[in-house]
């Protein structure tokens, strides 16, 4: 197997696995930048995956090839609604944000599996017929060398994810909204003094994480798993959380980390069919994202610091 062929297998698989992580990690970035820890990313992905699959199964006949994209929008809305629970608890009712996030995760799994049994009468949905499928991107895939590696046999969702990351970077670092979002995450009292509505900005942050987490789950379900059951989302959300931290709470950093984790995941799956890698136990690849994140946090490869006010409810008048 030549080097070119190996790249042609690895790059598209990496991007496939990275896409859900990128969306969700961006969601986490918005939430944490506004000062709300979101351990509930996993639960938001579960909701997104469930909604996308159910919508896809129900409307595939009427919507045809557009089904996965419309399902993705619905998954996004479901994510927003579900994240509102986390927002109300952690912002308005000053709940411990970590505990509320844990509750979101437990609740998402309970609710979706309950509904799957209610709707389909069994523990797992059928396999969807209209999923995101492999495509060659027009024009770009004709570029010599780069085309076959990056733009052939790939998925649109991966590129949408990368575009989203660039947009998120622009929004967070180049717009008034982004400046306000970051300021309530770093020093809410100062922001409040300057007339910024801390509560409102934090709601935006959490709801955006719901939207992106929902999309992340929808992408995973419709491009990778193709159905929904209890094990569909198992750790993807936490890996996205890791990507956000590894990327130092920066959208492009989070994207880079998500691609890297996607690479590790894809190697753990296809590694056995590649020369050189077939003898390495895949446990190393499976734990790599988590171990690297811990090392990143300890500062051996450049310290990662969370937004200062992250995790602290803002109470007007408290110093």
């Amino acid at each position: 197997m030549g080097f070119m062929e190996i790249l042609m297998i690895i790059v598209p698989t990496t991007l496939l696995w990275a896409a859900p992580l990128i969306f969700t990690a961006l969601g986490g970035t918005f939430s944490e930048r506004s000062g709300v820890i979101n351990i509930g990313l996993e639960g938001l992905m579960v909701i997104g995956a469930f909604t996308a699959i159910v919508f896809n199964l129900s409307f595939a006949d009427t919507l045809g090839a557009w089904t996965p994209w419309v399902s993705l929008l619905v998954a996004m809305l479901a994510g927003v609604i579900f994240s509102a629970i986390h927002a109300v608890a952690s912002i308005t009712f000053r709940a411990d944000q970590t505990v509320s996030g844990v509750a979101i995760n437990l609740l998402a799994v309970g609710v979706t599996l309950f509904l799957v049994k209610f709707i389909y009468g069994k523990g797992q949905t059928d396999i969807i017929q209209e999923s995101f499928s492999k495509i060659d991107i027009p024009l770009l895939s004709d570029i010599p060398f780069i085309g076959p590696i990056f733009f052939s046999n790939t998925y649109y969702t991966s590129f949408v994810a990368i575009i989203f990351a660039v947009v998120a970077w622009y929004v967070i670092y180049k717009t008034k909204f982004g400046l306000r979002l970051r300021s309530v995450g770093e020093h809410p009292m100062a922001a409040d003094t300057m007339g910024i509505n801390v509560t409102k900005m934090r709601y935006y942050g959490v709801l955006l994480s719901g939207a992106l987490g929902g999309i992340g789950g929808g992408v995973y379900a419709q491009a990778i798993s193709s159905d929904f059951g209890h094990a569909t989302i198992s750790g993807q959300g936490f890996m996205a959380l890791a990507a956000m931290i590894f990327g130092k709470w920066h959208p492009l950093g989070a994207m880079g980390a998500a691609i890297f984790f996607g690479f590790a995941q894809s190697l753990s799956i296809i590694g056995s069919s590649l020369p050189l890698l077939e003898n390495i136990p895949n446990v190393y690849l499976l734990v790599a994202p988590y171990v690297l994140t811990i090392i990143a946090l300890t500062g051996f490869i450049g310290r990662a610091d969370a937004p200062k006010a992250s995790g602290i409810p803002y109470v007007k008048g408290n110093r």
Binding site: V88, F93, A95, V99, L106, L107, G110
Partner: peptide
């Protein structure tokens, strides 16, 4: 009744205790 109902109840209890301010 799907047994996941209990998971929902447990999650809600966690949620309500966490939101004890409410």
């Amino acid at each position: 009744v799907p047994n996941e109902l209990v998971d929902i109840i447990i999650a809600l209890i966690v949620f309500f205790v966490a939101s004890s301010y409410m």
